[in-house]
Amino acid sequence: MTAYGAILGARIRMLLQYRAAALAGMATQVFWGIIRVMVFTAFYASLRPGVEAPMTLRQTVTYIWLGQALLGLLPMRIDGEGAGMIRSGTVAYELTRPWDVYWAWCMRAASLRIAPTMLRCLPIVVFAVALLPASMRLGPPASPAAAGLFALSVLLAVALTSVITALLTITMLWTISGEGLMLLLSGLAWVLSGIVIPLPLLPDAARHVIEWLPFAGTLDLPFRIYIGQVGPGEAAGVLLRQVGWTLALVMLGRWMLASGLRRLVVQGG
């Protein structure tokens, strides 16, 4: 286990070097956060009297800022190191190391998600709590229990988004160039994880499906626990859903990697 921990640590330290990218990303995320808060404030202002929204405006604003702060967790890009190895055919050399290739790739994927989030999260939170007018601020968690469950749920989201990212990398063993799938999936991921419109605000028919997809577990579900839209009583089900998807995608990923590598070792690079 220490070996995988070491891979994760080293890759995170490496990715933390990209300060300029972090600054640029932070600025964009703050800017979009403000715009989206204003858009939703306008939406709520135009609600017909008597119509009950599934979330209050305060909850929605908090949801949006959480989304901006943790945007790095969205499984939208795959790791360039793995992609490069697959393209150049050197991926076979991964087999010359005494590790489980799947977990090694998962650690690489996890570092890709964790490092930018670590860099950007705190400054965005500070900005969204301290520097904005009261109506636009990131609010506190619904309760101490919600805070604890949220923390747990974010950890599970990190695991889930990492196995999704690893799975995307693995598909490149067949497609070689990942651009097409990446373009398609990143578009979908933005919508399906609640970054464009918070999932509770979607029409019921769509919501019932999307809530059960793995993408909801990467951002939306933790946020709902935080704002109290999912109460501590229901949280167990949400956490289980994240765990279930993670396990299912781990199995799928291992199986796909094994068959992809089998092709490689039988047929050569």
Binding site: A3, A6, I7, A10, M14, Q17, R97, P98, W99
Partner: peptide, 29 residues
């Protein structure tokens, strides 16, 4: 087993050499 392929490096491109060594030591336990 140790392998060296002259055409490609096994070290991590962006890491200082010593960190690549540390990492390999961890991977090989």
């Amino acid at each position: 087993l140790g392998v060296v392929f002259g055409q490609r490096t096994q070290l991590w491109w962006d890491l200082p050499v010593i960190e690549s060594f540390d990492l390999l030591a961890a991977i090989y336990r």
